[in-house]
Simulated scan of single mutants.
Amino acid sequence: MTPRSRRSARPTTMSPSPSAGASATARAWAELLRLPALFTVPGDALAGAATTGNRPNRRTLLAIASSLCLYEAGMALNDWADQAEDALERPHRPLPSGRIRPSAALAAASALTAAGLALAARAGRPALAVAAPLAATVWAYDLALKRTPAGPAAMATARGLDLLLGATATGGSSRPALPSALTLATHTLAVTTVSRGETRGGSPLAPLAALAMTGTLAWTLTRTPQAPGTALSLHPAAALSRHTAADTLRTVLTAAFVTTSGRPLLHAALNPSPPLTQRAVGGGIRAMIPLQAALAARSGALASALLTAALAPAARRFARKVSVT
C-alpha cells in the first residue's frame, strides 16, 4: 500500500453542512412556535373588525400583527414553562431535546410580547387597552394558571380578547364584538378542556361536552340574525343580494366548522386515547378558522369571511409537517 493510499484509507468524520444545521434550527423553532397554528390567528381580528361595520384598514393589519406576536410569545413561553413535564412526556420537543436553549425560548417570548404591545399601541389607545390584558392573560396562563381549574377559562379569555383587539383597532369600541368574542371563547374553552387529556388520555366526558358545545355554537351561528354591517350603504336590491350571499356562506362555513371539530371529537369520545385526543385537539384548533369566517359572514363581511376561510388549506397542509398541539 502506497503512502497516498494509506492516507486515503484513514477514517474521516463528516461535519454537518451549514445549510443542514440552519434547516434543523429552523425546524426546531417551527416546532416550538407551532407555526401551522398561526393560520388560526388572523381570523380573530378580521371577525372582530367585521362587527364594527367598517372595512379592514391599516389599524386592523396592526392588530393582526400584534395578535401574531402575542400568540407566538405564548407558544415559546408554554414550552419554557413545561420543560420538566416535557422531559418526561415529550422528550422530542425542542427544549428537552436540546435543539433550542431554554434561555432562547424565554428571550423570544419576551421580545414577541414587547413587539405585540408596540404594534397594538400603533393601532391606537383602545387597541393597546385590550392588548395589555391579553398579554397578561397569556403570561398568567403559561406560568401559573395552566394546570389549575382556571386554565381553560384563561385560554378562552385570551382568545376572546384577541377578537376584541381587532374590533377596537378597527372601530374604536369592543361592544359590538362581544357576542362574537363569547362564541370564539366558548369554543376555545371546550378545546382547551379536551387538551388536558392529550398526553395520558382520560374520560370521554370532555370530548362529549365539547361535541355538544360544537352543536350548540353551530345552531347559534345559523339562527342569529345577520348584523347590518356594510350593507347599509348599498342599494336595497344590492343589500338583499349581499345579505343572501352572506347567509349562504355562513351556512357553508358553519358546516365546515362542525365537520372539522365534531368528527375527531366523536372519535375521541368513543376512544379517549392520547392519539385520538390529540387529533381532536388539533381538529378543534383548525376549526377556529371556519368559525371565525362564519362570524365574519354573520356580520355581513363577505370579503373578510372568504379571506379567513382561505387560510384553512394552508393550515391543514403545514399541520402535516409540524404539529399544532
Rank of each mutant, 00 (worst) to 15 (best):
P149M: 07
M155I: 07
V138L: 12
G151K: 04
L145K: 06
V138K: 03
A169G: 15
A158F: 01
A156Q: 14
W139G: 01
D142H: 05
A135W: 06
A169F: 15
T137I: 10
A154Q: 08
T157I: 11
D142L: 03
L145I: 07
D162T: 08
A132T: 13
Y141M: 07
T168K: 06
L163W: 03
L161W: 09
T157K: 01
L163E: 10
A154S: 14
P152T: 02
R147G: 04
A167P: 07
M155V: 08
P133Y: 11
V138T: 13
L164S: 09
A140N: 01
M155Q: 09
A150I: 04
L145N: 00
P149A: 05
G160S: 09
A156M: 11
G166Y: 05
A136P: 00
L163M: 10
A150M: 11
A158W: 03
L161A: 15
L164N: 10
G151L: 01
A135Q: 09
L145V: 00
M155C: 14
L164P: 06
L143N: 07
A136V: 11
P133I: 13
D162M: 05
L145E: 03
Y141K: 09
A140M: 00
A156W: 10
A153Q: 04
L165A: 13
G166W: 02
Y141G: 07
P152A: 08
D142A: 03
A135I: 03
P149W: 00
L164V: 03
P133W: 14
A136D: 01
K146Y: 05
P133H: 13
A135E: 10
V138Q: 02
M155H: 08
K146E: 01
G166F: 08
T157D: 06
L134A: 15
A140G: 03
Y141P: 00
A167C: 06
L143T: 00
A167K: 05
L164R: 09
R147L: 08
A140H: 00
P133G: 13
A150T: 04
A140Y: 06
G151S: 10
A150H: 05
A140R: 02
A135S: 14
T157A: 15
Y141N: 01
G160Y: 12
A136I: 02
A135R: 07
T148N: 05
A153G: 11
A140T: 02
A158S: 15
A169K: 06
L143P: 02
W139Y: 04
T157V: 12
A153D: 00
L163N: 07
T168Y: 02
P152R: 11
G151P: 09
A153R: 12
A169D: 15
G151T: 03
T137W: 04
L143Q: 00
A150Q: 08
G166E: 12
W139K: 03
